[in-house]
Amino acid sequence: MRRRLTDIAFRTATGLCACVACGLLVVIVWAICQRGWPALSWRFFTEQIRLVGADGGIFYNVLGTGILVLTALAVSAPLATAIALVQAVYLRGRPLGAMLGLFLQVLNGVPSLLFGLIGMIVFVQALGWGKSWLIGGLVLGFMILPTVCVALVERIAALPSRYVEAAAGLGLRRSQIIRSVILPQTKGGLITGSLLGLARAAGETAPIMFTATVFAGATVPRGVSESPVLSLPYHIFILSQDSFDPAVVTKVWGAALTLLALVCSLSLIALPARLKNHEEANNV
């Protein structure tokens, strides 16, 4: 009897934890939707910011975030592919490969703020670029490198060895096997990893606030140096700090809802593949 009671008590306690966690998601999403919904309109997405955020829309903020995120993709995809191939193919099973994996894990843990700081020291100050969308893209691309890379490495490791063996049996060299078997078979991993990385990059404020983005006064960048962009996260960050004007507050929640929708749709597209990978990795 006592064992049964313990069982029920433990189930209830852990179940409550799960309810709290899922309830948090509902509460947070509800809070944002409820406050942000009234701000959304056609004008909100097509106009530029006016009256320090109290009027107008977020067109250039969305555009700026898009530019930053696409640049990050262009930076991270080739680097991540190369590192993943080196780690999972060329150095497979060797200590150096394991060290590369560890390096990626540590890189994944580095606070995003420090990426911003280093981008500021190296590009903004030492190289004298000023604030620029390119620095933001580089910094974000480097930041999401581990995410993209790990997704690709997992997929390469899960590739059935008979594919590679068959290709080797046909007399293909290793570089040919990579180009004609491994990369085509694992491009899903690259796409999933990139989507997850982009979802993370789109929401980050810390790496771009010193390097790439301003609150107002930028439109479409026309060069590299001294050409910052507006961005959604920084917009929310600035407005949330010093605004008690109800008009501004509504606009901030609208921007937050837009950012949330953007990020969630990116990670939702990647979700099925990611869950499948996790389930298979820990197959029981």
């Binding site: 966690a21 948090l24 998601l25 947070i28 944002i32 979802a199 993370r200 789109a202 929401g203 980050e204 404020t205 810390a206 996260p233 929310i236 960050f237 949330s240 937050a256 950012l259 949330l260 990020v263 969630c264 990116l266 990670s267 939702l268 979700l271 990611r274 869950l275």
Partner: peptide, 10 residues
Amino acid sequence: ELLAGIPSVV
């Protein structure tokens, strides 16, 4: 996973 995706600024 969705909870994890919410940006820190939000």
